[in-house]
Design a protein around this nucleic acid. Sequence first.
DNA 1: AAAAAAC
Length: 522
Amino acid sequence: MKFSELGLSQDILDAIAEHGYVEATPIQEKTIPLTLAGRDVIGQAQTGTGKTAAFGLPILEHIDLDNPNIQAVVISPTRELAIQTADELKKLGHDKHVNVQVVFGGSDIRRQIQGLKSHPQILVGTPGRLLDHIKRHTAKLGHVKTLVLDEADEMLNMGFLDDIEAIIAEVPDQRQTLLFSATMPPAIKRIGVQFMTNPEHIQIEAKELTTDLVEQFFVRVRPQEKFDALTRILDVQGPKLGIVFGRTKRRVEELGRGLEARGYKAAGLHGDLTQQMRSRVLDQFKSHEINILVATDVAARGLDVKDVTHVYNYDIPQDPESYVHRIGRTGRAGATGTSVTFVLPNEMDYLRAIEELTKKRMTPLQPATLAEARMGRIKNALGSIKPLIEKAPIDDMGDEVSKLVSQYTPEQLAAGLLAQVAGLDQQNAPVEISRERPLPRRKGGHRNGGGGYRGNGRRGGGGYRGNNRNGGGYRGNGRRGDRDRRGNGERRGNGDRRSNGDHSNHRSGGSSRREFTVRNKD
DNA sequence: AAAAAAC
């Protein structure tokens, strides 16, 4: 159906056309007429099918420019999503001259207060900062006509619910309430309807919860193989843009550093970073300055980055809903994508539970072989080799070039160039996956507790070193066990110092870029 | 149980 058939006014239709939209998606087609008519709506549809415009267009339609009050509030679970949603509403409301403001934590509140003084008709925000503005009386919600919970099941979850209730207490009882998400567990829906009046639940009948546009794989790995398995798959698949999801902020931090140390253009994104850093990393990803974004579930929901080709669940998501949202970062707006979920042997049952929710089987994928990883690197390198050759400053190279030409065959020269560009003769070349690799210890670190380094797969843990070619240096792990059994504090200290010293020296002497570890201790 | 979200 065309947008022009949905009862929207010309200003809005013009903005839609400028935005490049022509046909309404099913969720837009079904919910826009209801929302325009003032009904409360629960809108549920697959990720990447235009839910923001689905609630945004009727809101913009209803905005009264002569009314100086905030008329609509949209609440988002993350700052990045709030920014993105506000940006989209600004674009769609541009022709109508609608004033949209956004408020979220971690950024200068004075500037937000200035923005709020400009009489926005629409306010988008994250819960904490929104409440802050309410308490400061810098945001007055007494005239709100429409309240939207974006990613509604997340907003109604414990952890957010108190804030949401506090915000709802500030908006009029007589209002329109809209809940939008790709997932809506029944228990959460029951909480949501308590805040609604005679809601209509529009659920787009898709056979599966996830889109067919995403090809879904899983890889069975042991904890100590995870990191190398990831790098090999990255080498083979050569994602244009890929998101790697980790379970905790710490793991994301270390995995990001680890990939970077191995030569990937990667960076971590998680809630312990400053907002400035969060924005910077996301911008780098959007501009392809980096092509691997390593993230916690802060990036699981709603983020709409063009050209995300791959999603990697380095750690299997905490709940099946999270899986749906994570892989929904790819395969958006008609594009195709690939997802790979890493599954530990004891997580196989849980994988099946995810498949029950998505109603879709994942395809088993063998971890790539060393040869495949090398070949993948070479193929990826081919893409960047042409400009390298054509832009080579041959005139500045004296007779060195002709010397090489007389010395080597064209095949040898090309192979050398390819190996260099592919990084195959570098320290970050693909390596044999070590099944015997002991888990690393924190550099110069002390251990708290003791607990087995091995066999706590339940924590999903395992430490990962990029390499252990000459694994001899790691006999210390076994020693540690002995030491602990002795329970001798003095010797323990001594042993720590010795083994850490050994390892750092060893590593920095050899392959310093492999120094990172991914710990399993939280 | 983790992450997110205010200072």
